[in-house]
Amino acid sequence: MSGPAPGAPGGEAAPTRARPSVLATHAVLAGIGGLFFLGSFSYPWTTVEDGTVGPGALPRVAGLALLLIGLAMLHRELRAGTVLEGDGHVEEESERTDGERRAVHRKLIVVSAALVVTATLIPFLGMLPTLAALTLFLTIGVERLRWPVALGASLGVLVVCYLLFVVLLRVPLPLGVFDPALWGAV
């Protein structure tokens, strides 16, 4: 079950073992999936009026998928460990320079703050414009992409989310200031 670890001296096989942080992460993902799956049963699978997909379908399918994927990853970690190249194994702090550590911490703080601001803006601007703005901010401010690429990604997120949630699934999303009922009352 063990293979050579990247950078192992002399090409010797390094023993793999389950890492507690990875186990905890997979367990949390499986738990969240299970909660969404169980919570979805309080909503109908289809709508009574026309038999279309109801509000319980998306959280039930996504929750079940997340639960199964989390359990499979948990099983894999318990069975074989994950000291594999490219698996997201955290490097030792001594392997990073001070500048790299500061950059990683800065990105983490910026992304976390951006998610809080996004959640705050959804009731005011609506879901789709806020997600597009978040994408634009993250692609320019965090990933440092060029403006044309960032605008394309932001527009792509807007179009895909609109087609998926509004057109295909007919999910009522918060519209914020773009709600016609708001402007009809004025």
Rank of each mutant, 00 (worst) to 15 (best):
R79C: 07
L158N: 10
T25C: 12
L136W: 09
G34S: 00
P148S: 04
R60V: 06
A103R: 07
V83S: 14
G152T: 08
E143A: 12
T82M: 13
L155K: 00
I32A: 12
G156Y: 09
P59M: 06
P123M: 04
T47S: 10
G10T: 13
M1S: 14
L67Q: 01
E100D: 09
G184K: 09
W45R: 14
R60E: 09
R19K: 13
R102C: 06
A103N: 05
G56D: 00
T16E: 11
A185H: 12
R76G: 10
E93V: 12
V28R: 03
L67G: 01
L134Y: 11
T16C: 12
T120R: 08
P172K: 09
V53Q: 10
S42F: 09
L35G: 02
V90D: 14
V104F: 12
L115W: 05
V157I: 10
A119F: 08
V166P: 00
V28W: 03
T135E: 04
V83I: 13
A27W: 08
R17M: 11
F165T: 03
V149W: 15
T46Q: 15
L38M: 09
F36H: 02
L78T: 00
T118N: 12
H89A: 15
L175F: 03
V111C: 01
E93H: 11
L35R: 02
F124G: 08
A153L: 13
T139L: 13
M127E: 07
A57Q: 14
G176F: 03
V53H: 04
T118W: 10
G11Y: 08
V186G: 10
E12F: 13
S40N: 00
R79D: 12
H75Q: 12
V83D: 15
R76P: 02
L125N: 04
I32D: 05
P172M: 10
L58K: 01
E143T: 05
L38K: 01
P174K: 01
S42M: 08
C161Q: 10
L67K: 02
A80P: 02
M73T: 05
L136Q: 07
S154N: 09
V159Q: 08
L155D: 02
L145A: 12
T47K: 15
L84R: 15
W147V: 14
V157R: 05
G152C: 09
H26M: 15
V53F: 11
L145V: 08
V186K: 08
I32W: 08
E77Y: 02
V111I: 07
D50F: 12
F124C: 06
L23R: 02
L164K: 03
V53S: 13
E49A: 15
E12M: 14
G184I: 03
E12I: 14
V159E: 08
V117Y: 04
G81K: 02
L158K: 07
I69L: 09
I109P: 06
A181M: 10
P20I: 11
V167N: 08
V149Q: 13
L115T: 01
T130S: 03
P174F: 01
L125A: 09
V104A: 14
P15L: 13
L38I: 07
F36Y: 05
L168K: 04
V116K: 03
A150P: 05
H105A: 15
D179M: 06
